[in-house]
Structures are given as C-alpha cells and as structure tokens.
C-alpha cells in the first residue's frame, strides 16, 4: 500500500482510538509539527460527518418505503383513516 494510503490508515486508527497509547502520543506529536497532518485529520473527520448524514439519508429513504407500504396496503385502511382524521381540519 502506498505511503499516502498508509497515512490515511494511521489517521483512521487515531480517529477511532485504535492506536496503542504510545503510538497515539507519537501521532499527536507529529500533528503538532505537521500542518498537513492536522489538515488531513480534519478532513478525515469531516468525511465521517458526511457519512453520518449519508447514512441518515439512506435510513430516511427506508422510512419512506415503509410509509408507502403501510399507507397503501388495503389491509391498513383503518390505520390510515385514523391517522388522517387527526389532521382533517388541516388537510
């Protein structure tokens, strides 16, 4: 694996607190003197934040599928009616 990918792997282990304490300390010392390493840690954390939101989007789209199923299944007609009645004045 090339060096830049090994660096990413190392940052990943640091972010996920998977480095042994000695290695974590060495990593932090490197980060103090390397602006580029600090930047890369920042971006890698940002990627995880984006992935969290991507995960939420995926879950939400699953909820839409369940909603469609629940609200369009003839067996759930009374469920649907009861819910919609709550909002009758606002519909």
């Amino acid at each position: 694996m090339r060096t830049s990918l090994s660096d990413i792997q190392q940052i990943e282990k640091y972010i996920h607190q998977e480095l042994p304490i000695e290695e974590a300390l060495v990593f932090e010392t490197k980060a103090i003197i390397s602006a580029s390493l600090r930047r890369n840690v920042f971006w890698q954390k940002k990627i995880h934040e984006l992935l969290r939101h991507y995960h939420r989007r995926k879950l939400r789209s699953e909820m839409e599928k369940i909603h469609h199923f629940v609200f369009h299944d003839p067996a759930n007609a009374s469920f649907r009616k009861n819910i919609l009645q709550l909002f009758a004045p606002n519909l």
Binding site: I66, F69, V70, N82, I83, L84, F87, N90, L91
Partner: peptide
Amino acid sequence: VATAFFSELYEKAFPPVAHFVSKMNGSF
C-alpha cells in the same frame, strides 16, 4: 430497517406521534 421489527414499530409509534403533532397544530 428492512426487518419486520421496524415495520411493526412504524405502525405502533406513528399514531402517538401523529396525536402529539396534531395537538401542537402541526400538519400531517
């Protein structure tokens, strides 16, 4: 999400949430 558990939860949990939102004058 694809499990029956979440489909069942959907049917159990939506009514109380809908009641709450309706009480707060929210829409469907």
